[in-house]
Design a protein around this nucleic acid. Structure first.
Length: 459
RNA sequence: GGUGCGGUGGCGGAGAGGCUACGCACCGGCCUGCAAAGCCGUGUACACCGGUUCGAAUCCGGUCCGCACCUCCA
């Protein structure tokens, strides 16, 4: 079976053929760590995590690199506002980011390079760009000369003229051309900076990804991931820099082979933005929902489609997940240690849908079919079905974590339940219902099951 | 204005010329002291207008509407 990936550079779904099948390499533009992660950050992380998981079903070695941007003007600003050092700020939110992603069952990247640890590599790349006459120095700035790269605009499909027409930024004194962008800029005494051949300064926005992907993966590598909004200018500029550093006018394919872009998360049909105040933080959502529930929401639409985050979507996923777990109860209580069941036709059908450009909605549909099939089997225990369901849940990253069940002993609650069960035995149902209502007023919901009465605290 | 992506049943969301996914919700039934859960079952759909075809949600032409990017952004 082939893995198909939609490549945003060629705008085609293409068969995935790695450069080196013994080591598949991919890079994703990671977060700028100055605030809590929002659900859009999480979508990118979950989707690329799933991509890596799927690739690993076919290729033994997959190297996934995703950076952490820990130097940026937004960080400087936040640090000033909050009156804490840049280092304290970035290390705090770096840790929070990783913790939150782990809650969503996102495996950490194999390498998570921090921009500040690769300044030297950025300087080397900038020097190379100057040497190749693709960049120029002007008033302590180093600018990339967009005119020098003939493939500029290929990814975002913008002609030079269009960009000039649409340009709303003023041409800086140090810019020869409106579209030229900063590789290096000077820092004043109050700004963080590093010594460079162009004076004390700091890198521009795009150069870090070019430097780190080259250093950590080597070029060309296989897949470059990120949110659609990064297509322009970030990814366009990355291509220009990375390729020009190899050789003037090098083809985009010299940098990476597939561009993988995930769609946006909107909230009630609008883009999440700070000015609209509709940013949904992962941190807040995790207070009320399991990571698995949030993850299921994020994969309920195919990754390239826009995902509209509404009030109901989480509740719906919660119910769905609940049903999945209830119907695969015994699966979670047993540990199956199979190698990936590639001879299992049920699992293969599921896998095929993911191989088709990560068609998660289809995959979830197949999973439901498998569960229904298992339920309807007279013995209900077909080992192949159980195995397929189990592996499918594991691959999607929504299988229930082996969380220790917190047994919060509450004497009053236990006593009331006992009292109610006694009343039920005596067929004193009025009293039984009274107790149910009483518990409900304390936000305790009870449920009579075959294993006895269980209770849970309502939110 | 330019570029790109879309408009599928009450909602979410696949599919992509005939076999009308799937989930959530609704409704009916079974089960249950009740409730919940579970089980069985029913229904409703492809933005609009033309065309091609024996047959179109799916192809072609046009229209309308939405969203995103072009400025920091996942």
């Amino acid at each position: 079976m082939n893995i198909l990936i939609f490549d945003s550079l060629s705008k085609k779904k293409k068969k995935f053929i790695p450069i080196n099948k013994n080591n598949v390499r991919l890079y994703a533009c990671g977060p700028t760590v100055y605030d809590y992660a929002h659900i859009g950050n999480a979508r990118m992380a979950v989707v690329t995590d799933l991509l890596v998981r799927v690739l690993k079903t076919k290729f033994k070695n997959v190297t996934f690199v995703s950076n952490i941007t820990d130097i940026d003007d937004k960080i400087i600003q936040a640090s000033n506002e909050l009156k804490i050092s840049i280092k304290d700020l970035t290390s705090k939110f770096f840790k929070i980011y990783n913790d939150e992603m782990l809650s969503l069952n996102v495996n950490l990247p194999d390498i998570q390079p921090k921009a500040t640890e690769y300044i030297k590599d950025m300087i080397i790349m900038i020097e190379k760009l100057i040497k190749n006459k693709c960049a120029y120095v002007e008033k302590n700035h180093v600018m990339f000369d967009v005119e020098s790269y003939k493939h500029y605009g290929k990814l975002s499909r913008r002609s030079i003229q269009e960009q000039l027409d649409g340009a709303r930024i003023e041409i800086g004194e140090y810019k020869r051309n409106a579209r030229d962008f900063v590789l290096w800029k000077p820092s004043d005494d109050n700004q963080p900076g590093w010594i460079s051949p162009w004076g004390r300064g700091r890198p521009g926005w795009h150069i870090e990804c070019s430097a780190m992907s080259k250093k950590c993966l080597g070029t060309p590598f296989d897949i470059h991931c990120g949110g659609v909004d990064l297509t322009f200018p970030h990814h366009e500029n990355e291509i220009a820099q990375s390729c020009s550093a190899i050789q003037p006018n090098a083809e985009p394919g010299k940098f990476c082979r597939y561009w993988f872009h995930n769609g946006f998360v909107t909230y009630n049909g609008e883009k999440m933005s700070k000015s609209l105040g509709n940013i949904k933080l992962v941190n807040d959502l995790l207070k009320k929902y399991d990571g698995e529930t949030i993850r299921l929401c994020l994969i309920s639409a195919q990754y390239r489609q826009p995902l509209n985050w509404t009030k109901d979507i989480l509740e719906q996923s919660k119910t769905t997940l609940n049903r999945i777990y209830k119907n695969s109860k015994e699966i979670h209580n047993e540990r199956y240690e199979f190698p990936l069941p590639l001879e299992n036709e049920f699992f293969l059908e599921f896998l095929e849908s993911l191989y088709d450009d990560l068609n998660t909605p289809k995959a979830l549909g197949i999973l439901s079919k498998l569960i229904n099939l298992k339920k309807n089997k007279s013995n209900g225990n077909d080992i192949k079905l159980i195995q397929a369901i189990n592996e499918s849940l594991k691959l999607l990253g929504i299988s229930k974590k082996a969380k220790p069940i917190k047994k919060i002993y509450s004497e009053s609650i236990e006593m009331l339940i006992e009292e109610r069960n006694k009343a039920r035995k005596e067929k004193n149902f009025d009293k039984a219902d009274e107790i149910r209502e009483k518990l409900k007023s304390q936000k305790i919901e009870i449920e009579d099951t075959q294993e006895g009465t269980v209770w849970k605290k309502l939110d």
